[in-house]
């Protein structure tokens, strides 16, 4: 039995919108601590890990673990029916095969109820080995999104180099090449504009810009983004939620290929 209430439906709407492009069908595991979603995209390049802590809900009750097999796109379609400031309630009975979503407009006394059919999804539950990242960069989510969007005009790939000097985004394509360099800085007025770099050793990785821009759709969830990278390892990109996070594990491009 799950019963979770959010004061503003927009909270969930944003999250679902941010991940829907990458995921199809996936299981949401519910337990006492909250909702958790972990799924690989079809090409196994990006792993999306979502955690919505019970604290984030105005009301949360989950006696037993429940697996909600959902098509994320279907969920997004239903959520569009909710106004941003609607009170949203998620309910699912034990062993039930549906998820009931209720949108309440407190002012107009309107109550909408949607039943989403649940699916049996044969999904592996994955775990990412915890690692110490060589470089951690905290920066404005909007700036990152903008920078990557600019470079995507030039190429399909972006190379991110992090060293003591700062973080450098560069791309090279048929048109030419371009790069943006950010020096570490502290903006006292707008804390989100600060660029904080923690570094144990310099890192340089290339990423697919298409996937990266999908990831940065989560920029609406948080003002800052944390990039964590180690050479030859997937990068971890995290957007903090009031309670919980949206985390992406992003496989880099391979630099050398025997057939190239």
């Amino acid at each position: 039995m799950l019963e979770a209430k959010l004061d503003a439906a927009s909270q969930l709407k944003k999250i679902v919108e941010a991940i829907r492009d990458m995921l199809g069908e996936c299981n949401i595991e519910c337990n006492e601590t909250g909702l958790a979603l972990q799924s690989l995209d079809k090409s196994h390049i990006v792993l999306v890990s979502l955690l919505l802590g019970s604290d984030g809900f105005s009301e949360y009750r989950c006696d037993r673990g429940v697996t909600l097999g959902l098509n994320i796109n279907s969920l997004a379609t239903v959520l569009r029916c909710a106004n941003n400031d609607d009170i949203l309630t998620l309910r699912s009975e034990d062993r039930a095969n549906e998820l009931i979503l209720t949108f309440e407009d407190s002012k107009a006394d309107r109550i909408s109820e949607f039943n989403l059919r649940l699916m049996d999804i044969d999904q592996e539950y994955l775990a990412i080995p915890e690692t110490e990242y060589a470089a951690t960069v905290v920066m404005s989510a909007a700036v990152l999104q903008r920078t990557l969007r600019d470079l995507s005009a030039l190429s399909e790939a972006v190379t991110i180099e992090i060293d003591k000097e700062g973080i450098r985004f560069s791309a090279e394509g048929d048109l030419g090449k371009g790069s943006t360099h950010f020096k570490p800085c502290v903006d006292m007025e707008n804390a989100e504009n600060s660029i904080n770099i923690t570094l144990s050793e310099p890192v340089s990785l290339s990423f697919n810009l298409q996937y990266f821009s999908n990831i940065t759709k989560a920029s609406s969830l948080s003002s800052t983004v944390t990039l964590q990278m180690t050479a030859g390892m997937p990068a971890q990109i995290e957007y903090k939620l009031p309670s919980g996070h949206v985390r992406y594990y992003f496989a880099p491009k391979i630099e050398d290929d025997p057939y190239a």
């Binding site: 390049i45 792993l47 775990a127 697919n208 997937p234 594990y249 496989a251 491009k253």
Partner: peptide, 13 residues
């Protein structure tokens, strides 16, 4: 030349 996450992710259960 895109690597896959598969080689880093261990099936938990």
């Amino acid at each position: 030349d895109q690597s896959s996450l598969d080689k880093w992710i261990v099936e938990k259960e």
